[in-house]
């Protein structure tokens, strides 16, 4: 079984995002970019399934600008076998990404797509669900545990009140939550090896996908900042303030 893992290049999670002065978006030029942390987890899961003999090949895909090549290389250094870069504008919308991935499905015919549950830039939490919808496949979102057996995948999902287990017919779509695994660091020899792994470059137009945005950004603004309050010296003083000043207890 082949596994396809879509990976997105985003502003590194350690960087505090800054809104551009003209309110058109968040500053991404000159900012450190990395693989979306949830996608590292997705890659790790796919590579582990390959190491267990469940999967035969792991293919990573990124849709975006040329620099997404770096993200694909990181994924190959973690153990993915090859990569596909689909060139488009930066950060296309989930609907467009899902359509591109559907076209990739026709080409690659994987048994499983594993995505991140959300990208930490636009926080949409949508692409995996949309891909599953377009393909008519089952979706195991917010996965904390994944087991493949007998032509099905059992997914333990993190839900609001606890966890839920679902069983899906293969092929299926899984989206990775934080606790699915702890991604490995790529070793230096593996980083070297990854340079020799093949990347195929396509254009979104060539796949016949209309990438037109449905959402236009009217403006991007800083949220209202909270002011730091006061430090109190004792528990007694805290209780007094909560009672008489904040009136919350």
């Amino acid at each position: 079984m082949k596994i396809v893992v879509p990976v997105k290049r985003v502003v590194d999670y350690n960087i505090k995002p800054r809104v551009k002065a003209d309110g058109s978006g968040v500053e991404t030029t000159g900012v450190k970019m990395s693989m979306n942390p949830f996608d590292e987890i997705a890659v790790e899961e796919a590579v582990r399934l390959k190491e267990k003999g469940v999967a035969s090949e792991v293919v990573v895909v990124s849709i975006g600008v040329q620099q997404a090549q770096d993200t694909l290389r990181t994924a190959m250094a973690m153990g993915a076998d090859r990569a596909i870069l689909v060139l488009s504008e930066e950060s296309p919308e989930p609907l467009a990404v899902a359509k591109v991935l559907k076209a990739i499905n026709e080409k690659e015919q994987p048994g499983l797509f594993i995505l991140g549950k959300q990208a930490i830039d636009d926080d949409m939490n949508a692409t995996g669900q949309m891909l599953a919808g377009l393909l008519g496949w089952g979706q195991g979102t917010f996965a904390g545990k994944v087991e493949v057996a007998d032509g099905r995948v059992k997914v333990s999902r993190e839900i609001d009140g606890g966890t839920e287990d679902v069983s899906l017919a293969l092929p299926a779509v899984v989206t990775a939550d934080l606790r699915l695994n702890e991604p490995r660091y790529a070793s230096l020899p593996n980083i070297m090896k990854a340079r020799k792994k093949p990347t195929e470059t396509l254009k979104a137009e060539d796949l016949g996908v209309d990438m037109t945005r449905r959402l236009t950004v009217v403006s991007v603004a800083e949220p209202q900042q909270r002011q730091a309050g006061v430090k109190v010296g004792s528990v007694g003083e805290l209780v007094e303030k909560l009672r008489n000043e904040a009136k919350v207890i």
């Binding site: 939490n125 669900q129 949309m130 919808g133 979102t141 609001d160 449905r214």
Partner: peptide, 20 residues
């Protein structure tokens, strides 16, 4: 968890970009 799971799927089937 339910809304985030179901609505994007329905949106894709309706050819709509959801607004989460």
């Amino acid at each position: 968890a339910v809304g985030k799971n179901v609505l994007p799927r329905a949106a894709a089937l309706l050819d709509v970009q959801p607004i989460p």
